[in-house]
Simulated scan of single mutants.
Amino acid sequence: MKNILLLVHADEGQEARLQAALDLTRALDGHLSCIDVTMVPNIAGDYDGTGSAMLLADERDREAGNKTTLEARLASEDVVWSWSDVTGFAAEAVIEAAALADLIVLNRKLDQFPYPDMRELASRIVVKARKPVVAVPDDRRGFKLGRALIAWDGQGSAAATMQACVPLLALAEEVQIFMARDGAEQTEPTEAAQYLSRHNIHTSIRIVDDGLTAADQLIADEAANWHADYIMMGAYGRGRLMETFGGVTKRMLAHSKFPLILGH
């Protein structure tokens, strides 16, 4: 896990993305690939394209200034980095750039000013790119690695995410596997723990039987009580713990106070 892909765009979540990406790149001794997307506006009723052209020109000017500022910052950071410029739609641009990425750094839903729609962006990218996505809150600065909570539903997406992120989990001081049992799990948390132990990653396991509380609330409560630094979870799981994007994952992207690492 060496290639970290960062979405660059002058929005309210950029500083959180940048600081998380820098911390992850340093920790993994990796390479930071910055993709600066000049986003094409979509205006309803703009039949002759005049309004869209004006907005695109403003967007290009804004991103040019953003690039100048960030390249100056990156020049003073202790990471190896590269930069590419793209004009288009953010999800498609990131997915195309992600072919050789090991980890993609985005936001969860932006709380301060919700443009672009990062919840939808993260949802599309994690499914299409098939790479782990880091989705950080827009008010978070940096990415702590010490305490990793794996929200386990026993489905293939959770297992694939955990396997892809072994190098990241190896940097944690403590790892906990948390499961709300619902009978739909295909792989037990003990099996996940055994897998990680073969990579010299030792975990604790906590299982709850609670058929009344929403799964995202169970995860959030466990993360807070255990003082997690981030939550790792599979997306599009079939069990109660990991519903489709209409349920648990979408709510986690909307409300989580913790950085998320999502995989499909």
Rank of each mutant, 00 (worst) to 15 (best):
S82F: 14
Y115E: 15
S82A: 13
T68Y: 07
W152P: 08
L110K: 05
N107H: 14
I125C: 12
L110T: 03
P137M: 13
V133R: 07
A135D: 03
D117Q: 08
A148F: 11
R124I: 07
D138K: 10
A98F: 00
F113D: 10
F89C: 03
A122I: 09
E120L: 09
V105T: 01
E59P: 15
A122R: 05
R108M: 08
V134T: 06
N107G: 11
L121R: 07
V127R: 04
L106H: 08
N107V: 07
V80Y: 06
D111Q: 14
G88P: 07
A99C: 10
G142Q: 00
G88I: 01
P137T: 12
D78K: 11
R119A: 04
I104G: 02
S84A: 11
E120K: 05
E63S: 00
M118P: 11
L103V: 02
D111H: 13
K109G: 06
A135T: 05
S84E: 15
K109M: 14
T87E: 15
R73K: 15
K144G: 03
G65V: 12
T68W: 06
M118K: 10
A72V: 12
D85C: 08
V133C: 10
E77H: 00
A97W: 10
T69Y: 12
R108P: 08
N66Y: 02
G146H: 15
I150K: 07
A129R: 09
E96P: 08
F143W: 01
L149C: 10
A148H: 06
W81C: 03
V94P: 14
D78P: 02
A91C: 12
D85F: 06
V133M: 10
R62H: 15
L110S: 02
A98T: 01
K131H: 09
R124Y: 14
V86K: 01
F143S: 00
F143P: 00
K109N: 11
T68K: 10
A72H: 15
